[in-house]
Amino acid sequence: MNVFKKVFLFYYEGFRSMTLGKTLWIIILIKLFIMFAILKVFFFPNFLSSKGDTKEEKSEYIVNEMEKRTINN
């Protein structure tokens, strides 16, 4: 049996014979779904991407923000 098949069977049999592990995997998958498909998409967009497309535009935005937040303003 080649190495890849051995590794595949190792994982396959491991996952198949899981008992407690199945519950844990379900929790992990639900959690990852909530995190990446809901939280990341709807609540945690990349803020700076909405302020500029290029690095120059983003750095310009940051400098302006910094100026705004100094004690002069």
Partner: peptide
């Protein structure tokens, strides 16, 4: 990326 974008950039 969302709440601390100034920091993340800096």
């Amino acid at each position: 990326g969302t709440n601390w974008s100034n920091y993340s950039w800096f």
